[in-house]
Protein backbone atom coordinates (compact mmCIF):
# COMPACT_ATOMS: atom_id res chain seq x y z
CA UNK A 1 0.00 0.00 0.00
CA UNK A 2 1.17 3.49 -0.82
CA UNK A 3 1.61 5.79 2.18
CA UNK A 4 0.20 8.85 0.45
CA UNK A 5 -2.00 8.94 -2.63
CA UNK A 6 -3.03 12.31 -4.06
CA UNK A 7 -5.53 12.55 -6.89
CA UNK A 8 -6.36 15.73 -8.78
CA UNK A 9 -6.15 17.87 -5.68
CA UNK A 10 -7.36 21.47 -6.09
CA UNK A 11 -7.31 24.38 -3.64
CA UNK A 12 -8.50 27.89 -4.31
CA UNK A 13 -8.52 30.89 -2.00
CA UNK A 14 -10.68 33.94 -1.53
CA UNK A 15 -13.43 35.51 -3.55
CA UNK A 16 -11.28 35.69 -6.65
CA UNK A 17 -10.78 31.92 -6.50
CA UNK A 18 -7.02 32.28 -6.75
CA UNK A 19 -5.77 28.83 -7.58
CA UNK A 20 -3.09 27.73 -5.13
CA UNK A 21 -3.08 24.04 -5.97
CA UNK A 22 -4.08 23.11 -9.48
CA UNK A 23 -4.98 19.49 -10.20
CA UNK A 24 -2.07 17.90 -8.37
CA UNK A 25 -1.61 14.13 -8.33
CA UNK A 26 1.20 12.02 -6.95
CA UNK A 27 1.82 9.11 -4.66
CA UNK A 28 4.45 8.32 -2.10
CA UNK A 29 5.52 4.79 -1.21
CA UNK A 30 5.95 3.58 2.33
CA UNK A 31 9.34 4.48 3.74
CA UNK A 32 10.06 6.85 0.88
CA UNK A 33 11.68 10.27 1.27
CA UNK A 34 9.64 12.44 -1.08
CA UNK A 35 10.51 16.06 -1.85
CA UNK A 36 8.17 18.81 -2.99
CA UNK A 37 10.53 21.29 -4.59
CA UNK A 38 9.44 24.76 -5.60
CA UNK A 39 9.60 28.46 -4.78
CA UNK A 40 7.38 30.35 -2.33
CA UNK A 41 3.82 30.51 -3.50
CA UNK A 42 4.11 27.30 -5.51
CA UNK A 43 1.43 25.65 -3.39
CA UNK A 44 3.63 23.45 -1.22
CA UNK A 45 2.17 24.56 2.08
CA UNK A 46 -1.40 24.27 0.80
CA UNK A 47 -0.76 20.68 -0.27
CA UNK A 48 0.76 19.83 3.09
CA UNK A 49 -2.10 21.45 4.98
CA UNK A 50 -4.64 19.49 2.98
CA UNK A 51 -2.77 16.24 3.58
CA UNK A 52 -2.55 16.93 7.30
CA UNK A 53 -6.33 17.64 7.32
CA UNK A 54 -5.89 21.29 8.21
CA UNK A 55 -7.52 22.47 4.99
CA UNK A 56 -10.36 21.05 2.97
CA UNK A 57 -9.61 20.55 -0.72
CA UNK A 58 -11.83 22.27 -3.27
CA UNK A 59 -11.49 19.36 -5.62
CA UNK A 60 -9.89 15.96 -5.91
CA UNK A 61 -9.09 13.58 -3.09
CA UNK A 62 -6.19 12.20 -1.14
CA UNK A 63 -5.42 9.38 1.22
CA UNK A 64 -2.79 9.20 3.92
CA UNK A 65 -2.08 5.70 5.27
CA UNK A 66 -5.26 4.63 3.51
CA UNK A 67 -7.37 7.23 5.33
CA UNK A 68 -9.35 9.82 3.44
CA UNK A 69 -8.19 13.35 4.27
CA UNK A 70 -11.73 14.67 4.61
CA UNK A 71 -13.72 11.83 6.16
CA UNK A 72 -11.08 10.12 8.26
CA UNK A 73 -9.32 13.20 9.55
CA UNK A 74 -9.24 11.88 13.11
CA UNK A 75 -7.27 8.78 12.18
CA UNK A 76 -4.85 10.84 10.14
CA UNK A 77 -4.36 13.32 12.95
CA UNK A 78 -3.33 10.61 15.36
CA UNK A 79 -0.96 8.87 12.99
CA UNK A 80 1.00 11.58 11.19
CA UNK A 81 3.69 13.95 12.36
CA UNK A 82 3.72 17.54 11.13
CA UNK A 83 6.28 20.30 11.29
CA UNK A 84 4.81 23.56 9.96
CA UNK A 85 6.88 26.10 8.09
CA UNK A 86 7.30 28.52 10.92
CA UNK A 87 9.13 27.61 14.07
CA UNK A 88 6.06 26.33 15.88
CA UNK A 89 7.04 25.56 19.43
CA UNK A 90 6.46 27.41 22.66
CA UNK A 91 9.25 29.97 22.93
CA UNK A 92 8.75 30.43 26.66
CA UNK A 93 8.93 26.74 27.46
CA UNK A 94 12.22 24.87 27.77
CA UNK A 95 13.32 22.15 25.37
CA UNK A 96 12.27 19.48 27.82
CA UNK A 97 8.91 21.09 28.60
CA UNK A 98 8.09 21.43 24.91
CA UNK A 99 8.93 17.82 24.22
CA UNK A 100 7.03 16.62 27.28
CA UNK A 101 4.01 18.67 26.35
CA UNK A 102 3.80 17.35 22.82
CA UNK A 103 4.41 13.81 23.99
CA UNK A 104 1.49 14.09 26.41
CA UNK A 105 -0.80 15.73 23.88
CA UNK A 106 -0.14 12.83 21.56
CA UNK A 107 -0.86 10.41 24.38
CA UNK A 108 2.65 9.08 24.78
CA UNK A 109 5.78 9.70 26.82
CA UNK A 110 9.33 10.65 25.88
CA UNK A 111 10.60 7.31 27.21
CA UNK A 112 8.27 5.25 25.05
CA UNK A 113 9.67 6.43 21.74
CA UNK A 114 13.01 7.70 22.85
CA UNK A 115 14.80 5.41 20.41
CA UNK A 116 13.29 7.39 17.53
CA UNK A 117 14.54 10.77 18.62
CA UNK A 118 17.66 9.71 20.47
CA UNK A 119 20.07 10.60 17.65
CA UNK A 120 18.66 14.09 17.38
CA UNK A 121 17.82 14.69 21.01
CA UNK A 122 21.31 14.00 22.33
CA UNK A 123 22.52 16.98 20.32
CA UNK A 124 20.19 19.38 22.13
CA UNK A 125 19.93 17.56 25.46
CA UNK A 126 22.77 19.56 27.08
CA UNK A 127 20.49 22.60 26.74
CA UNK A 128 17.28 20.91 27.82
CA UNK A 129 16.55 23.54 30.46
CA UNK A 130 16.98 26.39 28.03
CA UNK A 131 13.88 28.09 26.70
CA UNK A 132 13.13 27.37 23.06
CA UNK A 133 13.11 31.08 22.23
CA UNK A 134 16.78 31.29 23.15
CA UNK A 135 17.94 28.50 20.82
CA UNK A 136 19.79 28.88 17.54
CA UNK A 137 17.95 28.23 14.29
CA UNK A 138 19.53 24.82 13.88
CA UNK A 139 18.69 23.78 17.42
CA UNK A 140 15.10 24.96 17.13
CA UNK A 141 14.78 22.90 14.02
CA UNK A 142 16.07 19.81 15.78
CA UNK A 143 13.70 20.32 18.67
CA UNK A 144 10.79 20.79 16.28
CA UNK A 145 11.71 17.55 14.56
CA UNK A 146 11.87 15.73 17.91
CA UNK A 147 8.41 17.06 18.78
CA UNK A 148 7.02 15.93 15.43
CA UNK A 149 8.53 12.48 15.91
CA UNK A 150 7.75 11.81 19.53
CA UNK A 151 4.52 9.91 18.89
CA UNK A 152 6.13 7.60 16.33
CA UNK A 153 4.22 8.83 13.29
CA UNK A 154 3.85 6.61 10.25
CA UNK A 155 4.20 9.58 7.95
CA UNK A 156 6.11 12.77 8.59
CA UNK A 157 5.24 16.06 6.88
CA UNK A 158 8.01 18.65 7.01
CA UNK A 159 7.04 21.99 5.50
CA UNK A 160 10.15 23.93 4.51
CA UNK A 161 12.18 22.74 7.48
CA UNK A 162 15.40 24.28 6.17
CA UNK A 163 14.20 27.73 5.12
CA UNK A 164 16.22 30.49 6.75
CA UNK A 165 18.64 27.99 8.23
CA UNK A 166 22.34 28.27 7.40
CA UNK A 167 23.97 25.72 5.09
CA UNK A 168 25.71 23.81 7.89
CA UNK A 169 22.48 23.22 9.80
CA UNK A 170 20.73 22.35 6.56
CA UNK A 171 23.25 19.66 5.84
CA UNK A 172 22.94 18.17 9.32
CA UNK A 173 19.18 18.22 9.04
CA UNK A 174 19.22 16.21 5.84
CA UNK A 175 21.56 13.70 7.41
CA UNK A 176 19.00 13.24 10.19
CA UNK A 177 16.25 12.67 7.64
CA UNK A 178 18.36 10.00 6.00
CA UNK A 179 18.60 8.16 9.31
CA UNK A 180 14.86 8.43 9.93
CA UNK A 181 14.16 6.90 6.57
CA UNK A 182 16.05 3.86 7.75
CA UNK A 183 13.40 3.55 10.51
CA UNK A 184 10.72 3.01 7.86
CA UNK A 185 9.05 6.37 8.38
CA UNK A 186 7.58 7.89 5.24
CA UNK A 187 8.78 11.46 4.90
CA UNK A 188 7.33 14.24 2.78
CA UNK A 189 9.46 17.33 2.79
CA UNK A 190 9.07 20.62 0.96
CA UNK A 191 11.87 23.04 0.17
CA UNK A 192 12.67 25.99 -2.04
CA UNK A 193 16.34 24.93 -2.21
CA UNK A 194 16.95 23.06 -5.44
CA UNK A 195 20.23 21.61 -4.21
CA UNK A 196 18.35 19.63 -1.57
CA UNK A 197 16.42 17.75 -4.23
CA UNK A 198 19.18 15.23 -4.86
CA UNK A 199 18.89 14.06 -1.25
CA UNK A 200 15.33 12.79 -1.82
CA UNK A 201 14.30 9.40 -3.21
CA UNK A 202 11.80 11.03 -5.51
CA UNK A 203 10.82 14.61 -6.07
CA UNK A 204 8.00 16.67 -7.52
CA UNK A 205 9.01 19.98 -9.04
CA UNK A 206 6.20 22.41 -8.45
CA UNK A 207 5.45 25.95 -9.58
CA UNK A 208 2.26 28.01 -9.60
CA UNK A 209 0.24 25.19 -8.06
CA UNK A 210 1.12 22.75 -10.82
CA UNK A 211 3.51 19.85 -10.79
CA UNK A 212 6.09 20.26 -13.54
CA UNK A 213 7.70 16.86 -13.18
CA UNK A 214 7.77 13.90 -10.80
CA UNK A 215 10.55 11.34 -10.76
CA UNK A 216 13.77 10.37 -9.07
CA UNK A 217 16.27 13.23 -9.12
CA UNK A 218 18.51 11.09 -11.32
CA UNK A 219 15.81 10.49 -13.92
CA UNK A 220 14.82 14.13 -13.99
CA UNK A 221 18.41 15.11 -14.62
CA UNK A 222 18.83 12.46 -17.29
CA UNK A 223 15.69 13.63 -19.03
CA UNK A 224 17.25 17.05 -19.62
CA UNK A 225 16.70 17.48 -23.37
CA UNK A 226 19.45 19.88 -24.43
CA UNK A 227 23.15 20.08 -24.51
CA UNK A 228 24.19 22.21 -21.55
CA UNK A 229 27.48 24.07 -21.45
CA UNK A 230 29.28 25.57 -18.50
CA UNK A 231 30.98 28.75 -19.60
CA UNK A 232 33.37 30.83 -17.60
CA UNK A 233 35.01 34.19 -18.16
CA UNK A 234 36.53 36.85 -15.99
CA UNK A 235 33.51 39.11 -16.12
CA UNK A 236 30.22 37.39 -15.44
CA UNK A 237 27.97 40.28 -16.37
CA UNK A 238 29.52 40.79 -19.80
CA UNK A 239 29.68 37.04 -20.33
CA UNK A 240 25.94 36.76 -19.74
CA UNK A 241 25.26 39.67 -22.11
CA UNK A 242 27.43 38.05 -24.76
CA UNK A 243 25.78 34.65 -24.41
CA UNK A 244 22.36 36.24 -24.56
CA UNK A 245 23.06 37.71 -27.95
CA UNK A 246 24.57 34.55 -29.47
CA UNK A 247 22.13 32.98 -31.98
CA UNK A 248 22.95 29.37 -31.09
CA UNK A 249 22.42 29.82 -27.37
CA UNK A 250 18.64 29.59 -26.74
CA UNK A 251 19.01 30.19 -23.02
CA UNK A 252 21.77 31.15 -20.66
CA UNK A 253 21.97 32.06 -17.03
CA UNK A 254 24.45 32.41 -14.21
CA UNK A 255 25.19 29.24 -12.32
CA UNK A 256 27.72 29.63 -9.55
CA UNK A 257 31.07 30.68 -10.95
CA UNK A 258 29.96 29.50 -14.41
CA UNK A 259 27.20 30.52 -16.73
CA UNK A 260 25.07 27.66 -17.97
CA UNK A 261 24.03 27.84 -21.60
CA UNK A 262 22.04 25.50 -23.77
CA UNK A 263 23.77 25.03 -27.08
CA UNK A 264 22.64 23.74 -30.45
CA UNK A 265 25.90 22.44 -31.91
CA UNK A 266 28.46 19.78 -31.19
CA UNK A 267 31.46 22.03 -31.74
CA UNK A 268 31.96 24.66 -29.07
CA UNK A 269 35.07 26.28 -30.57
CA UNK A 270 33.18 28.92 -32.57
CA UNK A 271 31.41 29.95 -29.36
CA UNK A 272 34.73 30.32 -27.55
CA UNK A 273 36.08 32.40 -30.41
CA UNK A 274 32.96 34.54 -30.37
CA UNK A 275 33.29 35.23 -26.66
CA UNK A 276 36.94 36.27 -27.08
CA UNK A 277 35.93 38.53 -29.92
CA UNK A 278 33.54 40.19 -27.47
CA UNK A 279 36.58 41.12 -25.42
CA UNK A 280 36.16 38.54 -22.68
CA UNK A 281 39.23 37.04 -21.05
CA UNK A 282 39.76 33.76 -19.24
CA UNK A 283 37.15 32.07 -21.40
CA UNK A 284 36.53 28.42 -20.60
CA UNK A 285 33.81 26.28 -22.18
CA UNK A 286 32.97 22.74 -21.12
CA UNK A 287 29.98 20.43 -20.82
CA UNK A 288 27.99 21.16 -17.69
CA UNK A 289 26.83 18.65 -15.14
CA UNK A 290 23.07 19.07 -15.29
CA UNK A 291 21.44 19.74 -11.92
CA UNK A 292 17.84 19.78 -10.73
CA UNK A 293 17.99 23.56 -10.87
CA UNK A 294 18.79 23.38 -14.61
CA UNK A 295 15.86 21.05 -15.08
CA UNK A 296 13.59 23.37 -13.15
CA UNK A 297 14.65 26.36 -15.21
CA UNK A 298 14.12 24.37 -18.37
CA UNK A 299 10.64 23.34 -17.23
CA UNK A 300 9.72 26.92 -16.43
CA UNK A 301 10.61 28.18 -19.89
Amino acid sequence: MEAVVVKNLVKTYGKEQTVAVDDVSFSVGRGELFGLIGPDGAGKTSIFRMLTTLLLPDGGSARVDGHDIVKDFRQIRSSVGYMPGKFSLYQDLTIEENLNFFATVFGTTIEENYHLIKDIYVQIEPFKNRRAGKLSGGMKQKLALCCALIHKPTTLFLDEPTTGVDPVSRKEFWEMLGRLKAQQITILVSTPYMDEASLCDRIALIQGGRILSIDTPQNIIEAYPDRLLAVKANEMYRLLKALESHPDVPSSYAFGEYAHATFRHADTRPLEAYLREQGLTGVEVKDAEVTIEDSFIKLLH
Binding site: M83, P84, Y90
Partner: peptide, 13 residues
Amino acid sequence: ETGTMEILLVSPF
Protein backbone atom coordinates in the same frame (compact mmCIF):
# COMPACT_ATOMS: atom_id res chain seq x y z
CA GLU B 1 0.16 33.18 15.12
CA THR B 2 3.12 31.08 16.14
CA GLY B 3 1.81 28.06 14.27
CA THR B 4 1.52 25.83 17.33
CA MET B 5 -2.23 25.66 16.76
CA GLU B 6 -1.50 23.80 13.52
CA ILE B 7 0.43 21.15 15.40
CA LEU B 8 -2.26 20.88 18.06
CA LEU B 9 -4.94 20.44 15.43
CA VAL B 10 -2.90 17.72 13.77
CA SER B 11 -2.90 15.69 16.97
CA PRO B 12 -5.30 13.18 18.46
CA PHE B 13 -6.29 15.73 21.09
